[in-house]
Design a protein around this nucleic acid. Structure first.
Lengths: 215, 215
DNA sequence: GTCTATATTTAGATAGAC
DNA sequence: GTCTATCTAAATATAGAC
């Protein structure tokens, strides 16, 4: 398990980002039983919350007995941590690969479109990522908080660049960064598949965010 | 208890809105023990979530034994429902009293400023209102959902008015309504008192929301 | 690696004295 | 209306067979 986690971390930190841009790909989790437990836990945590989810529920979604869970994960919290860590790294990878364009405006639109579409397309894991932080152990929370700061920095830096070249007017940089992030993050609260195409939502939100800051 | 609930409902539905615009005023909850339980539960639910909060925790915050809780409330869920119902009604009352101004732009700015400041100033109950819906019973969820639709309508109608008179350009009315609501609602997720003055945040967000939609 | 069976803890809620 | 004491159920996690 430790090995699995390490190899994933190295992956997202730069070399092969494309392999982790889709959080529904869990091929790297071995064996298959551990993968079924992980995906079952994501669904259960997103639907009912960490505290309301029982290990029996997770195990039964994976088609096994409660005891079998502990062969693959030492605790329910550890399962949450692996989900949260993977989800945060996937979201950061999406942002970094979307931070492209000739102007701050292009880069901001690309960032917001990608971040928003990710929260819609992967609303299940996104819900766990954004709303189950409080159930992590203090050490694990510290670890994901580092990734969250990196996510925030991606947005803040583009806004700062736009202010610098005069294309953006942003009186309160930290406050506006939070507002732009809020637009995308809150998607994980309300999105369901019947609410439309993730990419269309991404484009709408890219437009709204751009209008929020353009000078 | 039923009487308390009824009289409150009548209050917010129009006659004397000012009495409920501050959700930290719980004078109408009698006796004092019931009030202490309610405010203790708000803090506990906001900090730890409904499922992770024990009746022992709530009772101890109110300075009494676990059993005493059941004299005032028939269940932990009922406590949540009263909090959620009161919070939703207070938020709706704030919006309705803020929906004033000569132009759609003025009204939108007033609405967003008030709704945002409410989520910051009362972030504890706002957190329960926005993130503990899933712990309500089906019947109770139906009841607060009605209030949530009324809240959404306040924003949507102002946007529609601005489109009508040409001062707003909104290609996707329901989508933009959700985005404007998201800005304010997400404040309940991240706000802590050290993050600044609620009214200043309200003004910033009013500005951002206005720029999002102006033609 | 998975099972059945179970140890241990803790939770929501109740009984009955005062 | 509050207390102590407790019932009952359910949850996390473990033991040990296969």
């Amino acid at each position: 398990m430790a090995k699995r986690l390490l190899s994933f971390t190295l992956l997202v930190q730069g070399v092969n980002v494309s392999a982790v841009t889709d959080p529904l790909e869990w091929d790297h989790v071995e064996p298959a039983a551990a993968r079924r437990l992980l995906t079952g836990a994501i669904e259960a945590f997103a639907e009912r919350g960490f505290q309301a989810t029982t290990t029996r529920d997770i195990a039964s979604r994976a088609g096994m007995s409660p005891a079998a869970l502990y062969v693959h994960y030492p605790s329910k919290e550890r399962l949450l941590f692996e989900i949260s860590l993977y989800g945060h790294n996937a979201a950061l990878a999406i942002l970094r690969s979307a931070n492209v364009g000739d102007t701050p405006a292009d880069r901001l639109r690309s960032l917001v479109a990608a971040f928003t579409a990710w929260h819609a397309r992967h609303h299940t894991i996104a819900h766990v990522v954004q709303y189950e932080l409080g159930a992590l152990s203090p050490d694990h929370l510290t670890e994901v908080a580092t990734i969250r700061r990196a996510i925030s920095t991606e947005i803040e830096q583009v806004l700062a660049d736009g202010v610098q070249d005069g294309t953006f007017a942003v009186p309160d940089l930290p406050g506006t960064t939070l507002a732009v992030l809020s637009l995308s993050i809150d998607v994980a609260r309300w999105y369901t598949p019947h609410r439309g195409d993730p990419d269309a939502l991404g484009k709408l939100y890219a437009d709204l965010a751009h209008r929020m800051v353009q000078s």
